[in-house]
Simulated scan of single mutants.
Amino acid sequence: MTTLDTALYLRRLDLPAPAAPTLDALTRLQTRHNAVVPFETLASLMREPVAIDLPSVQRKVLQATRGGYCYELNGLFLALLQTLGFDVRAIAARVVEGDDRTPTAQTHLCGLATLDGAAHLVDVGFGGNTPTAPLRLDRRDPQSTPHGRYRIDLAPDGLHTLQAEILDRWRPLYRFDLRPVPAIDREVGNWYVCTHPDSSFPGQLRVARAGPGWRRTIGNGRFTLHRPGRPSQHRQLADADDVLAVLAEAFDIRPAPQPGLRDAIETWLSSYR
Rank of each mutant, 00 (worst) to 15 (best):
K60P: 08
T65E: 15
L42T: 03
M46W: 04
L109F: 03
A20L: 13
C194S: 14
S144I: 13
R216T: 05
R254H: 13
V124E: 01
V61Y: 12
P172H: 11
T31M: 11
L84D: 08
R11H: 15
E40P: 04
T2Y: 12
R254V: 08
D252Q: 15
T27K: 00
L42N: 02
P259H: 00
D177V: 07
A250N: 09
H147F: 04
R230V: 10
T217S: 10
H33S: 04
R151N: 05
T130P: 06
F201D: 09
T145M: 02
E249C: 11
P131S: 01
R175M: 10
V207L: 02
D123H: 08
S271I: 12
H147M: 13
L225Y: 06
V61E: 07
V124F: 00
A164P: 08
P131I: 00
E266L: 02
R222A: 07
P255Q: 01
G67E: 06
I184S: 14
L109W: 07
Q163R: 15
L4I: 02
T83M: 12
G125S: 08
G85V: 10
Q143D: 03
G98K: 09
R175I: 05
L173N: 07
W191K: 13
H33P: 00
C194V: 12
R47Y: 10
I91E: 02
E187T: 15
